[in-house]
Amino acid sequence: MPSMRTGSGWLCRGALRAAALILGLSPAVAAESVATALVVSVDVSQSVDDTRFRLQMEGIAEALEDSSVVGAITGNPGGILFAMVTWADRADLVVGWRRIASRADAVATAALVRATPRQAGEFTCLGQMFRTVTAGVLPALPVPAERVVVDVSGDGIDNCTDAESLNGAHEALLATGATVNGLPILVPGENDVVGAGAYRAPGYGLLPTPLPQERTSLEQWYRAHVIGGPGAFLLAAEGYGDFSRALRRKFVIEISALGR
C-alpha cells in the first residue's frame, strides 16, 4: 500500500481514508496536505490553580477566534490541523486532530477548548509530554503536513524526569521533524529564578534525581530544554493575564510561518 511522508513519519493512504471518515472529510480532501499541523501543549500541574487553568483555556479559545489568527489560518489552502494536549503527571490528548479552515471551524474548536475539564496532576512532567506527543499524537495526523509545530506553555521546569531522560525525550520529538516553540509564563515573585535552591516545585526532594542544580530564569530554561527544530522561537507571557495576548501573536507567527 502506498504511503505518504509527513513531519511525524509515514502515513499510509488507508489510514488517511479512515481518519477522513472520522473527521467527516471527503476522500479528495483527505489526500491533500496542510501547511501547518499545530499541537498546543498546556501545563496544568499543581501550580496551575482553577483560575489559571481557565485563563489558559480562555486564552487559547480567544486566540483561535481572533481575526488575525483566523486570517492566518484561512490564508493557508485547506487551513490547518489543530490538536491540544494538557499535561501534569501525565499528558492527555484533550482535543484530537481537527481541521480548521474557516471562522466557523475556529469557533467550534474554541468551544471544545473552553469545555475542556481540569486534569488532575501534581508534577510538571515535561519529558512525559514529549513522549506522548511523539508516540501518540503526531502519528495520528489525519493528513500530511508540511510542518508540525508543538507549542509548549507552562510556568515551571520539569520536576519528575532526570536530565538524561528529558533530553532523550526532547531529541526524539525533534527527530520527527517537528518544531517545538515555547511560551513560558512569567509570574513575578514566584518563578523569577528556577532551579535547585530557588523554585522548589511539588515533589522536590522526593524524586529519583534532583531538580537542575543551576539557578536560572524560566526563559533560559525553556531555551535550553524546550524549544528546538526548524525556526523554533520563544515568546514569554508576562503572567497569566498576558497569556491570551502572547498566544495570539504566537499563533499568527506559527501558522503564517513568519520570522519572529
Rank of each mutant, 00 (worst) to 15 (best):
L141C: 09
P142I: 13
V143S: 02
V143L: 09
P144D: 02
P144E: 03
A145C: 11
E146T: 01
V148Y: 01
V149N: 04
V149C: 06
V149K: 02
D151C: 09
S153V: 08
S153L: 04
G154Q: 03
G156H: 03
G156S: 12
I157M: 07
D158L: 06
N159H: 11
D162C: 13
D162T: 09
A163R: 02
A163N: 05
E164N: 07
E164F: 10
E164W: 08
S165R: 15
S165L: 14
L166T: 07
G168P: 01
A169M: 12
H170L: 04
E171G: 06
A172F: 06
L173H: 02
L174H: 04
A175M: 11
A175H: 12
T176I: 08
G177H: 02
A178Q: 02
V180A: 00
N181R: 03
G182Q: 01
P184L: 00
P184H: 00
I185D: 00
I185M: 06
L186Q: 13
L186W: 08
L186E: 10
V187F: 07
P188R: 11
G189M: 05
E190S: 13
E190A: 11
N191E: 07
N191A: 08
N191G: 10
D192Y: 13
D192Q: 10
V193M: 10
V194Q: 01
V194H: 01
V194D: 00
V194L: 01
G195V: 00
G195M: 03
G195C: 03
A196E: 13
A196H: 12
A196Q: 14
G197W: 14
A198P: 05
Y199C: 08
R200L: 15
A201T: 03
A201E: 01
A201P: 02
P202T: 06
P202A: 13
G203Y: 10
Y204S: 15
Y204P: 01
P208I: 05
T209Y: 13
T209S: 15
T209K: 14
P210F: 07
L211A: 02
L211Y: 02
L211M: 07
P212A: 12
P212S: 11
Q213M: 10
E214R: 15
E214V: 14
E214N: 15
E214M: 13
R215Y: 05
R215A: 14
R215F: 06
T216V: 03
L218C: 09
L218E: 04
E219T: 14
E219R: 11
E219L: 08
Q220Y: 06
Y222A: 00
R223I: 00
R223Q: 01
H225F: 01
H225T: 00
G228A: 06
G228W: 00
P230L: 03
L234R: 00
L235K: 08
L235W: 06
L235F: 09
A236N: 05
A237D: 04
E238K: 14
E238C: 05
G239C: 06
G239D: 08
Y240S: 05
G241S: 14
G241E: 14
D242M: 04
D242G: 05
F243W: 07
S244K: 14
S244I: 08
S244C: 12
R245G: 14
R245F: 09
R245T: 15
A246M: 09
A246I: 04
L247K: 07
L247R: 04
R248F: 10
R248H: 08
R249P: 04
R249V: 07
R249Y: 13
